[in-house]
Amino acid sequence: MKWIGLIAVIFTGGLLLSAMDDFPNWGDAHSPANSSPVSQYYIEQTMTDSGVPNMVTAVLADYRGYDTMFETVVVLIAGIAIMAILRVAKQVPGGAKPTPAHEVGDQHDIIIGTTCRLLIPVLQLFALYVIAHGHHSPGGGFQGGVILGASFILAAIAKGLDPALQRLPEKRYVKLAFVGVVIYVSFGVACLILGENFLDYGVLHELLPTMSAEEARSHSMLGVEIGVAFTVSMIMFAIYANLASKGELEGGL
């Protein structure tokens, strides 16, 4: 088995390495990937189209907004699939004994608790900054959402899963995850109602308090990123909470 795997891997790798000669050189600005009109358009026109300096945010939330919307839906479906898989699984007779490898003490440590109490508000504030400042610096809905989810996970690790789940019970985080997708889709549908294409934010300046269509694009990108952040943060916490407690949502790591 190992030999067959090794032969297959060496064959695949050799095929790719033999094609290395045709690759463009490292850092070639005129390689086919870099000189394609699409990426040139993104670099040149982002500022005039929406006034957002960070091209990655602009491409993510505006030009390729349809793609990002369904990526968010994929994350949501993955979270729901994890809950479903861990809940439905029945105990087969003759299965494993449910004894963890080692036990963790009951009372949680005072030093770790105090540090986390100091740290978690700062972390959440930083997450909101990353979400809101994604137009001008690296950041955006995905990164900020993951940091926000990580702050909840930190609370769950430091104080135990049960207190964290009392603050953020399952009903609430599933609802908030759906709210994120609803926010995203509602931006698209609003454009549709106002007579433009789906997720073409320019017309939204009739609804939003903005001066021009460019500014409306910029502001709608922020709204869309907030929706992404809702879904991603809640699904990250859901993944951790379900995986750490085998889907029972008690006990935990």
């Binding site: 463009p24 490292w26 990937a33 670099i43 300096p53 990655v56």
Partner: peptide, 14 residues
């Protein structure tokens, strides 16, 4: 594949 020699990060000097 997206790296360009001597280029900066894709955030415009605004």
């Amino acid at each position: 594949a997206g790296v360009k020699e001597g280029a900066t990060i894709p955030i415009l000097e605004h």
